[in-house]
């Protein structure tokens, strides 16, 4: 006789039945190009998010290009004069 492990789990079965998964109609015949477009349009994490969460870090990001510009200028000044 086959034992059903869910037989006595009425409450668990109720909760499991809440989880429905419906397939959209447009799944079939999706070409590689459309897949690539879907990949491009899929949401991704912002790589700077952990840094941007703090105001201090945001200021650092804003100041980095200025600091780099100053550094390059200083190097050029050292080379030419």
């Amino acid at each position: 006789m086959k034992h059903d492990p869910f037989q006595d789990e009425t409450k668990l079965k109720e909760r499991l039945n809440e989880y429905t998964a419906e397939m959209p109609e447009h799944v079939r015949n999706k070409g590689n190009f459309r897949r690539f477009i879907s990949y491009l349009s899929s949401p991704t994490q912002n790589p700077l998010e952990p840094i941007m969460s703090k105001q201090k870090h945001l200021s650092v990001i804003q100041l980095i290009p200025i600091a780099l510009t100053l550094l390059i200028t200083f190097v050029q000044v050292l080379i030419f004069f």
Binding site: M23, V27, K30, S38, Y39, S42
Partner: peptide
């Protein structure tokens, strides 16, 4: 992941 699920079906 809906996108992945659709791709896997195909």
């Amino acid at each position: 992941d809906e996108q992945l699920s659709m791709d896997i079906v195909q």
